[in-house]
Write a protein that binds this DNA or RNA. Structure first.
Length: 264
DNA sequence: CATCATGTTATAAT
DNA sequence: CATTATAACATGAT
């Protein structure tokens, strides 16, 4: 389920372990989430270290340890981070557990679309050096948004919003939310936006990210009821703006949800 | 049993 | 080469 705000919230769940010594690292070496990861290095590198800090960017999470090394996590579709008191018995889909004296810091992911990375070296890991600006960041400028749209004129805007190179952190519900708030059909070709709409797109993206961070990201509380968010998974789902029944349809392999009356 | 799920990526087709 | 479209990945819930 994790998009920008959910990722931040999950990363925070390990914060209670900050400053604590990692006494043991339990993992399922053969798990798909370790693809491309040097598991032995991870294990020997983290044992005996203290968890120092974390940061998130879009859907990426990065944890720093006292030796200056780093643990990168991506939650995929079903990943989850939690902390549990000791003694902790790992469950079926717990792929990585950092054990301190008092706590178990757990990474779980049934579908295993998530990913674990280990970075040696004190410098910020290479993938973190040149990240695209998130919608609420300074660098997320109007010219940048304009050039992204111009570069992919035929792509349905909703599908483009899911591209992490351009809109890091935006996932399926946020993309639908933005399209709904913009009153545009998800299939609207990105190149068809007028200048005014492009400016509105930037503002809407920024607002959706900021409000999501203040609610979901802070304490898992709900975004405003006026948003599409709370209604899109209802059984008898209807538009919170006009009451018309919402439509769900596949768009480029993902489910798009929209209001056939409000969105044009 | 069939369908669906808040993500990414390799590969194919324009 | 750049852009666009699709299939595949693995598991659980309904």
């Amino acid at each position: 389920m994790p998009e920008l705000a959910e990722v931040f919230y999950f990363a925070k769940q390990w914060d209670v372990g900050q400053g604590q010594l990692i006494a043991d690292v339990a993992l399922h070496e053969k798990s798909r989430v370790f693809r491309g990861c040097d598991v032995a290095a991870l294990q020997s590198g983290l044992i005996g270290q203290k968890l120092r800090a974390f940061r998130t960017h879009g859907k990426q999470m990065l944890f720093e340890f006292s030796n200056g090394h780093w643990l990168g996590l991506h939650l995929g579709m079903t990943g989850d981070l939690k902390s549990r008191p000791q003694p902790y018995t790992p469950e079926k889909h717990d792929h990585l557990v950092l054990n301190t004296k008092k706590l178990a810091l757990v990474f779980t992911d049934p579908r295993m679309f998530g990913r674990v990375q280990y970075f040696c070296g004190k410098a910020l890991p290479e993938p973190w050096l040149k990240l695209p600006p998130q919608p609420m960041d300074e660098g997320f400028t109007l010219p940048r948004v304009q050039s992204i749209l111009q570069r992919h004129p035929k792509t349905p805007l909703k599908a483009l919003l899911l591209d992490q190179r351009y809109f890091p952190g935006v996932g399926n519900w946020m993309a639908d939310e933005v399209m709904w708030q913009m009153r545009l059909l998800p299939t609207t070709p990105a190149g068809e936006l007028e200048a005014k709409q492009t400016s509105a797109l930037r503002k809407t993206l920024k607002k959706v990210c900021e409000v999501a961070l203040k609610t979901i990201g802070m304490d898992w509380s709900d975004p405003p009821e006026s948003w599409l968010f709370l209604h899109r998974w209802d059984k008898n789902k209807s538009c919170p703006r006009c009451g018309v029944g919402l439509v769900k349809e596949d768009l480029r392999g993902r489910t798009a949800c929209w209001c056939p009356a409000c969105q044009r």
